[in-house]
Structures are given as structure tokens and as C-alpha cells.
């Protein structure tokens, strides 16, 4: 078995995945994520970005293919070991900010650290620091429902960043936001990751978002492509040729 290259923190080889209902997910993807870089996984909806991120982070068990993290195999681990690795080493940001509604904002941000066994005081200090940094420090004592969507997403980012993960997986973190909020969220995420040397794997369908990253990996239909030449969406209005009703 070949060892992964030294500077790749996360490394996948010929990753295949089929969903439980038989629909194809990934078809042979190989990629390496270098230490401290921001890697954008780019592709249209349904191209397998989320599945790839889930496989890489160990949320989904890999059926065939290999995933290595820090020179140790991830695809051979059992569910309990994968869960522990997920908790201790990885961070995850959803497209929707799923916060625990009955905890206040700072408790939400401190939750991963408390789940890791850190003391309450230390977790609180760190969470408040990150919240301040992401510009939601003044709402730290509110409940999540009092916050706007972009603020909740920033809280989710603070929650993912606060325990200091080695790799942060961000699955379309800006999809439901407007442009102004999107830019701010992305900029804060990128700045925080670069200043702390956190490796980020960022799934996005937006080429502007991908421009923020160091490298871009393009996906199409579960395969890695190097040049995506999709036909432009034509203006279908007024064209009788494609109409099904004739």
C-alpha cells in the first residue's frame, strides 16, 4: 500500500460511492488536500459535492476506495472511531445553520468544546472570542431565533472554528444568503482559516466563491473533471422547437 504524500493532510484515491437506493454518487474520485490550504470543490447541483465531503469527513462509510487522514487510513475505521475522529479533528458547516434552539448563542458555539470534554469556563472564553471575531459578539446571550440568517450562519462558523479543527468541511455555507452577507461570511471564514492554519474543504457551485480558494477541484456527475465545458443555458422563451405541447 502506497503512503500518501507528506504535505497532504487528507488524501482520497479512486473513491466510489453508491447511495442506498442505488443512485450513483461518486465514480472514482482521487484528490489530495494540502496542509493549510483552502480547497474549493466546485460543480453544479447534484454533482456529488456533498457526498464527497461526507465521505472525506467520515460521516459516510466508504465502500470502495481509500481515504487517508494524516497518514492513517480512514476507510478502515469502525463507526465509533470515525465518530471520535469527526469530533476531535474535523469541523463541519451545513448549508443551513442548524443551531440548538434552546441554547443561547455562546452556548451553541461552546458546545463542540464541551462535547470534547473542555471545561465550561474555557469553552465560554474561546467561544466568546470567536463570536466577537465573526462580528456576532453582541448577540452572544440571545437565543438563535432572535438572530438573522446571516448571523446564525456566522454563529455556525464560529461553532465549527472554535475547537480548532484540523480540517474544516464547509458544505455550501453561503447558499441561502444574499450577496452582501455571502461576501462577509466567506471573507470571515477565509480569514479565520488562514490566520489559524486550518485546512478548509469548501463545496460551492458559485465560481465567485471558488475564486477565493487556493485550488479548485471541479466535479461533474460524480467525476473529477479538469475542464468543465457546459453549454450556456439558452434563452428558451419563444422557441417552439422544444415545446412538448405541440
Amino acid at each position: 500500500m502506497e503512503a500518501p504524500p507528506d504535505n497532504d493532510v487528507l488524501w482520497a484515491r479512486s473513491l466510489h460511492f453508491t447511495h442506498r437506493d442505488g443512485s450513483p454518487g461518486l465514480a472514482g474520485i482521487s484528490l489530495g488536500v494540502r496542509q493549510g490550504e483552502i480547497l474549493a470543490v466546485n460543480g453544479p447541483r447534484g454533482s456529488g459535492k456533498t457526498t464527497l465531503l461526507r465521505c472525506l469527513s467520515g460521516l459516510l462509510p466508504v465502500r470502495s476506495g481509500e481515504v487517508w487522514f494524516n497518514s492513517s487510513p480512514l476507510h478502515t475505521l469502525g463507526p465509533a472511531a470515525r465518530e471520535r475522529l469527526c469530533r476531535e479533528r474535523f469541523g463541519w458547516i451545513d448549508p443551513e445553520p442548524v443551531l440548538v434552539p434552546e441554547l443561547s448563542v455562546w452556548e451553541n458555539a461552546a458546545l463542540p468544546m464541551m462535547l470534547r470534554g473542555a471545561g465550561r469556563r474555557r469553552a465560554k472564553v474561546s467561544a466568546l472570542e470567536w463570536l466577537k471575531r465573526l462580528d456576532v459578539g453582541d448577540r452572544a446571550r440571545c437565543r438563535p431565533r432572535a438572530l438573522r440568517h446571516a448571523e446564525r450562519q456566522r454563529v455556525a462558523i464560529a461553532r465549527a472554528l472554535a475547537p480548532g479543527p484540523e480540517v474544516l468541511f464547509a458544505d455550501e455555507p453561503t447558499a441561502p444568503l444574499h450577496h452582501a452577507d455571502r461576501t462577509q461570511v466567506l471573507r470571515t471564514l477565509a480569514t479565520a482559516a488562514r490566520s489559524h492554519g486550518i485546512t478548509v474543504v469548501l463545496a460551492t457551485h458559485d465560481p465567485d466563491t471558488a475564486a477565493l480558494a487556493d485550488r479548485t477541484v471541479a466535479l461533474l456527475d460524480g467525476r473529477r473533471v479538469h475542464t468543465v465545458h457546459l453549454p450556456d443555458v439558452p434563452d428558451a422563451e419563444g422557441r417552439a422547437a422544444c415545446s412538448l405541447s405541440v
Partner: peptide
Amino acid sequence: GTTAALLRLG
């Protein structure tokens, strides 16, 4: 939903 989110948090 909250329980699922907590499980995903680890």
C-alpha cells in the same frame, strides 16, 4: 432535527 444536528457535531 436538533438531535440529528447534535449527532453531526459529534
